[in-house]
Design a protein around this nucleic acid. Sequence first.
DNA 1: AGTCCACAGGAAGGGCAGGCGA
DNA 2: TCGCCTGCCCTTCCTGTGGACT
Length: 405
Amino acid sequence: MDQVVGMEQRTLEDILESFVNSQSIFKNKKALSINYYPDRICFRDNEIQNLVRILGPVLKNEKPSNVFIYGGTGTGKTLVTKYVTNQIKKTAEKYNFPIQILYVNCKMKKVSDTEYRLLAYLCELMGLHVPATGLPTDEVYRRFFNRLSYFNGPTILILDEIDALVRKIGDELLYNLTRCGDEGYDLTIVGISNDLSFTQYLDARVKSSLSEEEMIFPPYNAEQLFEILKDRAKIAFNEGKIDECVIRKCAALAAQEHGDARRALDLLRVAGEIAERNNDSKVEEIHVDLAEEKLDLDRMSEAARTLPKHSKLVLYTILKLLKNKEKVLTGEVQKHYEYLCKQISLRPLTQRRISDIISELDMLGLVNALVISKGRYGRTREISLSVTEDIQNKVLSILHSELFL
DNA sequence: AGTCCACAGGAAGGGCAGGCGA
DNA sequence: TCGCCTGCCCTTCCTGTGGACT
């Protein structure tokens, strides 16, 4: 017995020692996170210079033009904007010039769902607590503007994913914010979006005011993504732990997804994590394949766990129906959903609501829903999946245990 | 050219919960 | 404590729509 225990202990010791002695794959994993700000931003020199030219006058106490920045996901819009505004802030601090930068990601839940919430959040950023509900919206506006004038200097407000804001709450808030420049408040708005179509919902005055200056960020091509990844990999990985061909594969996969640098970094990071977990000596191409699958699975199973009950059931219905075919229509989903509701004694939601839930699932990237017309057989959504059968099965089993057990 | 289908999606509003301020 | 206000989730009612069919 002692002998067995002794052996087990030795094995454990060996494993633990191997952690200490073997050289880790990562040197500084943070370099692969989206929150990492590199010293050098590749392939965005023009954009940086442009933005500095637009926002720079703030340091001369002149009000800069509002800017609207457009470009696909992971094209460096946020990175460049934060980089430039940080530099402006640093310079301002050097000369004791007061300036405040407010950054809001409008896609964040509980931040920009309503006019009230966003204003409350902005007040919080300026150090003023506003209750989550209870006050008339006018009062929150009053407090926000009070706080703005209380700060004795210019403010740059960055509204990231501004399209999400407009879709959720319309353009009234933007109208009020863009007007406040006319009323003596020193506020410059930088709107960032990856969707140009939302501007059609904007009031003409808001549109022209917001787009006093416009910038477009083109997607990175595979070669540029490769260079960006190579730079980051140098910081992130220990020497000899990753080959160029692996980096190239991540770049190529992300380039297929509209040149998304964020996706490329995620792939590289997760591939490294998988290699490390498997105790492999270096990151190989197979790890990238596994990383791609893991990212999809994580995204879907996270949603499967956190969605509200009816959304879970709708997603379950879709996954179930898509086991036998490639595409389903809204009507089929509705019918099967109602059948499942009966099985678990749940009062089904109306078709109108289900239609919205399908849109939400589409927006979350869990399903692909395309509005199509089938002629005299009506207009509907054609719903499909873009994940492997394996992931589909895993998510189905998570949803099954969440819903039926 | 007109009809018709099966929805999409906008608008309005109900009901409930939570929080504020007098 | 109570009236008021907002958020959230949902329903009801309605108009709009693209293209196959007649």
